[in-house]
Amino acid sequence: MSIIFIFLFISIVHSDIPLDVPSFSIDLDHAPIDRWSDIIPNFAQPMNEFNIAIRAQIPQVFIDAAEIIVTRLEEHIPQPYYDELYSIARSISMPLADIVLINLVYELRTYCTSLLVRTSNNTIIHGRNLDFDLNTDLLRRLTFHVKFFRTSNPTFNYESIHFAGSIGLLTSSRSGYFSLSINQRSTDDKDWWMNALMSILHLHSLPLFIITRSIFDNSIMSYQDMKYILQNRHLIAPVYFIITDGRSSGMIITRNRLNSINPIELNSTLVQTNYDHWLDDPSNDPRRTAAENILQSFNSTQMTQDNIFDIVLSVIPVLNKLTVYTAIMNPGEKQDIFAKIRTLKPRQ
């Protein structure tokens, strides 16, 4: 009863009108230089606005380093992803350095709530709210759904909830195989921007947008293969990987740049925000605690997509003014990603 009361109270004092997410498709059999040319021009204005905004908000030294990376891009970004970045830049006449910068900002600023829930029919629901603390309204205008496929292989496809300009995957599902969401891991590293760039320049670590695409673009990749890569591949920044095969297994992988620590496997429910799961939520950010308390009040038959969306991912503070979108994946049911752009605001 208390959960219902809270939900009704929040509905009275706040307004959120979930919006549909526009959808596109990409044939991976097409040349990489052409894959994004029909999609990105639809987002030219908000992409330019976002680029101007982030250049004004992030340290200049980070921008300078991104421009250095571009001068040696072929050393750091393998094909076909080099050509995809160039394709995006060409399609809206934006400098390639700015596209690289946008990709790095997208993957280094994801303040999110991700959850895994085992249902009564033995599938696993994978839900997430993606929160972004830079220019949230612009990010809503840059959000779309994309289905990747190969004409040459009718059985191969996967989906992503995407930000225009990015080639990587923050929220993605391959039906019948696995799903993935990525949350930023909060640390005390005050120089994390520069450390991330130095990892690319001097340690030859791959950005997440390359690692995630190389996993999902591989038609023979298994859940166990993905799990091994995400636990062991050197990264440019600490993150959390939330993964499931949709049927029997799911887990949270907590990553440093070089290794994983304290992985936790799914029993009935798991919730991850931006803090290590073995620590308490900070007092000013109780998103994980709020979601866990609601899930603990459910019985197994209440673990449904509708309830996860309506009662867990739509309740403050799990839903908040920085939430760009909500996505629910269920790779075990072989369902498309259900996603809505969120617009939470106080009622006038």
Results as ranks from 00 to 15, higher is better:
residue 231 Q to I: 00
residue 147 K to S: 12
residue 210 I to M: 04
residue 208 L to R: 07
residue 198 M to L: 15
residue 224 Q to L: 11
residue 195 N to E: 06
residue 208 L to Q: 12
residue 192 W to N: 11
residue 172 S to E: 01
residue 163 F to N: 06
residue 203 L to Q: 09
residue 226 M to G: 04
residue 149 F to W: 11
residue 178 F to G: 03
residue 151 T to C: 06
residue 214 S to D: 08
residue 193 W to L: 01
residue 200 I to F: 10
residue 184 Q to S: 11
residue 210 I to A: 04
residue 174 R to C: 04
residue 201 L to I: 13
residue 189 D to E: 13
residue 221 M to A: 15
residue 152 S to V: 03
residue 146 V to M: 05
residue 155 T to K: 10
residue 199 S to R: 13
residue 154 P to A: 12
residue 202 H to A: 07
residue 197 L to C: 12
residue 195 N to G: 05
residue 207 P to C: 08
residue 199 S to G: 12
residue 163 F to L: 05
residue 153 N to E: 14
residue 156 F to W: 11
residue 228 Y to C: 09
residue 164 A to C: 11
residue 155 T to I: 07
residue 187 T to Y: 07
residue 218 N to L: 11
residue 189 D to Y: 04
residue 220 I to M: 08
residue 183 N to C: 09
residue 181 S to H: 07
residue 208 L to N: 11
residue 179 S to Q: 05
residue 159 E to F: 00
residue 191 D to N: 15
residue 193 W to Y: 14
residue 205 S to W: 09
residue 189 D to C: 07
residue 213 R to K: 10
residue 155 T to W: 08
residue 168 G to Y: 05
residue 172 S to N: 10
residue 159 E to I: 02
residue 160 S to F: 00
residue 219 S to Y: 00
residue 231 Q to M: 14
residue 147 K to T: 15
residue 189 D to Q: 10
residue 196 A to E: 01
residue 208 L to M: 15
residue 191 D to W: 09
residue 205 S to Y: 14
residue 149 F to A: 05
residue 192 W to Q: 06
residue 218 N to R: 14
residue 217 D to Y: 00
residue 143 T to H: 03
residue 176 G to D: 06
residue 184 Q to I: 07
residue 216 F to Y: 13
residue 177 Y to G: 09
residue 223 Y to V: 02
residue 190 K to R: 13
residue 182 I to S: 10
residue 231 Q to F: 03
residue 164 A to G: 04
residue 216 F to P: 08
residue 228 Y to H: 12
residue 231 Q to Y: 00
residue 224 Q to D: 13
residue 226 M to C: 12
residue 185 R to K: 14
residue 151 T to Q: 12
residue 225 D to H: 13
residue 228 Y to R: 13
residue 215 I to D: 03
residue 158 Y to M: 06
residue 216 F to T: 03
residue 231 Q to G: 13
residue 211 I to S: 02
residue 231 Q to W: 03
residue 220 I to K: 12
residue 192 W to I: 15
residue 174 R to D: 09
residue 232 N to V: 01
residue 206 L to I: 05
residue 216 F to G: 03
residue 178 F to W: 06
residue 177 Y to T: 14
residue 191 D to Y: 14
residue 150 R to P: 06
residue 189 D to P: 07
residue 173 S to R: 05
residue 222 S to K: 08
residue 193 W to T: 04
residue 195 N to P: 02
residue 221 M to D: 08
residue 186 S to E: 14
residue 178 F to Q: 05
residue 194 M to C: 02
residue 203 L to K: 12
residue 154 P to W: 03
residue 192 W to P: 05
residue 167 I to V: 11
residue 166 S to K: 01
residue 203 L to D: 10
residue 158 Y to D: 01
residue 161 I to L: 02
residue 206 L to T: 09
residue 227 K to L: 12
residue 231 Q to R: 15
residue 148 F to A: 07
residue 183 N to L: 01
residue 168 G to R: 00
residue 161 I to D: 03
residue 147 K to D: 06
residue 166 S to T: 13
residue 172 S to H: 08
residue 193 W to Q: 07
residue 170 L to G: 15
residue 160 S to Y: 04
residue 149 F to Y: 15
residue 189 D to W: 06
residue 177 Y to N: 12
residue 203 L to Y: 10
residue 170 L to T: 11
residue 227 K to G: 00
residue 213 R to D: 02
residue 200 I to C: 07
residue 147 K to G: 05
residue 197 L to T: 08
residue 175 S to N: 10
residue 192 W to A: 10
residue 168 G to A: 02
residue 164 A to R: 00
residue 156 F to Y: 15
residue 231 Q to A: 10
residue 200 I to W: 07
residue 152 S to W: 05
residue 158 Y to G: 03
residue 194 M to R: 01
residue 201 L to G: 00
residue 224 Q to W: 00
